[in-house]
Computed example of a mutant assay.
Amino acid sequence: MKAKVIALALFAGVAAHAQVSGSLPDERGMYHEAHVYHIMLRSEGDAQAVFATLQRAPKQRLLAAFKGAAADKSIDPGSRQAGGDLGLIKEGTMVRPFEIAAFALAPGQMSSPVQTEFGWHLLYVASAKSTPVAQLCEQTLKAHLNATRGLPANVIALTKSERPGMSGFEGKVTRMLGPLWGPPLKDMDGNLTFLRAGSTDASGNTEVLQHTEYPYARLNISPMACKRSERTRFQVNCHEGTVQMQSVEEQELRGGQGLVVNRRSVSTPRAISKSEYGGFLRQVRDLACATGLKT
């Protein structure tokens, strides 16, 4: 079990990191996969020394030399025994600096030293594949619609053919959401968003829901889907003037319809105080704390 710790750590936090940071491509981009070998070393100096040695290997012998160096030098016990072989890695499953280096390489190429939070790495790509995200989104949407029978025709049409910025889009989403939701707004990233105040508990915490429509479908890898809209739940304490994000639900369809493709709790160490937040979070607080707007 101990021998797998470092390799698993490389794969770990990365799915979470990718989802939170928004580093996965939307439907305008490409989704990448690659069969990767790596050598992990403690310092840049160690990595540069191994890199210099491998650079002298003939191209047709580079992989064999790389595997030998991994078995001899790598500090990752989980992959060292396999000559550094990590198998097929998919975008969104590794730490971001590692992915950036891996997906920039053509098959048969080796990277210069790459630093991550786990150490210094040399990468060798044996094979690579890139797929248009739009193609993946078309496939996952078709599967979603087949699995969710009885959806209104206007929801399907809105999802397939329209996006924020198109004429009449805001009005259609407003009607889908219903009268309890506020008017169209822009979030901190300029996305079309709507707010709804909820109930207040005994501790004075008021729930606020945010519904966001993305202009382009964003790839989600676990499960594989393309999110077009999102529901975020905030907790606002009007007495203390704090706003804290609680959870996020991602949906493949527009207008908050259909199945939730991914649901995650958001663990933050503390709430955002009113001295720290700007325009949009101020609107969240003002909605929660305004007299007569709670349901």
Rank of each mutant, 00 (worst) to 15 (best):
S127L: 11
Q115C: 03
N205G: 02
Y216P: 00
F234P: 00
K67N: 01
P113N: 00
G182P: 00
S267A: 15
R149Y: 09
H38V: 00
L141F: 01
S130L: 08
F66V: 02
L180V: 12
L145M: 04
T200V: 07
A202T: 13
A101P: 07
T131E: 07
L180A: 15
A106N: 11
T140C: 02
G198H: 09
G84N: 04
A9F: 05
P215L: 06
Q246H: 08
L185V: 03
T200H: 02
Y277I: 09
V261D: 04
D187F: 01
Q283K: 13
T232Q: 14
F234M: 04
G83Y: 09
M176I: 10
A49V: 06
K227D: 05
Q210N: 12
A106D: 13
H144W: 06
F118Q: 09
R282H: 14
V133F: 08
I272R: 15
R175W: 08
H211D: 02
P152E: 02
E207A: 15
H211F: 10
M166P: 00
F118C: 03
L151R: 00
R282G: 13
P58N: 10
G22S: 06
F103E: 06
C289S: 01
A102N: 07
F98T: 01
S199I: 12
C137G: 05
L177P: 06
Q55W: 04
S161V: 11
P215N: 08
R218A: 13
